[in-house]
Design a protein around this nucleic acid. Structure first.
Length: 216
DNA sequence: TAGGCCATCTGGTCCT
DNA sequence: AGGACCAGATGGCCTA
């Protein structure tokens, strides 16, 4: 559904953009060109002429001011979208032509959950390392306290005994801002808002994410 | 066709 | 005055 904005939000529904939107020009250049060339504006009926007062300093007319403000606003939103694209690039979800782009709200929610998950995993790893270095007695696995799956995967990569990376799973979220499809990555707990309703209480077992269990 | 998501425009507010 | 930021309105595109 977001395919219309997949090309870095450069939908040119505005007449200004259609005129200045050259594929060779980076967006910022396009916007600069727009700022420099307020000419041929599509004046609305009833609006004053863009030409300034006769004789005096060529003060920007109301129309020119409006065009400049509009251009700045477009550039601002474009920068915001570029930042969001950068965020999507580092998010653990499938990327490719067949995968729908995350919406803005989904990107923000997923990023928040991702940060919380990484923080939790870091804490778990620190706990494991401290147990490993505590002495030979504590080198046994703390079976009574199952590890967080993300920590277990990290520990497996570090050669910690008894840890196996979980198989990668793909699951559907019933609804919500993440969209219908979300790929669950091995070793990472599910980041969707369904599973992360209480991020402080991340599951400590390697069982399937709750949304996997909930969905049929 | 309804609803979601988006880009854009626009006016207001705040800051420099 | 000019720029940044914000929120509401509007209209287009897409999907279920």
């Amino acid at each position: 559904m977001d395919s219309d904005v997949a090309s870095s939000s450069s939908r040119a529904s505005s007449p200004e953009l259609e005129e200045a939107g050259s594929p060779e020009l980076p967006p910022s250049r396009v916007f600069e060109a727009l700022c420099r060339e307020p000419g041929a504006p599509q004046r609305r009926p009833g609006e004053p002429s863009p030409s300034g007062p006769a004789g005096g300093k060529p003060r920007a007319s109301r129309q020119e001011q409006r065009l400049k403000v509009n251009s700045r606003e477009r550039r601002r939103m474009h920068d915001l979208n570029q930042a969001l694209d950068g965020l999507r690039e580092v998010m653990p979800y499938s990327q490719g032509p067949a995968v729908r782009k995350l919406s803005k709200i989904a990107t923000l929610l997923l990023a928040r959950n991702y940060i919380l998950t990484l923080s939790s995993s870091l804490q778990e790893m620190r706990r494991l390392l401290s147990e490993l270095h505590a002495g030979p007695r504590s080198q046994q696995l703390p079976q009574a306290r199952p590890m967080h799956p993300a920590a277990c995967s990290l520990a497996a990569a570090a050669g910690y005994p008894g840890c196996r990376p979980a198989p990668q799973e793909t699951h559907r979220t019933a609804a919500g801002p993440l969209g219908p499809f979300y790929r669950h990555y091995s070793g990472l707990p599910c980041l969707c808002s369904v599973c992360q309703a209480a991020p402080q209480e991340l599951p400590r077992t390697a069982a399937a994410p709750s949304c996997l269990r909930a969905s049929k």
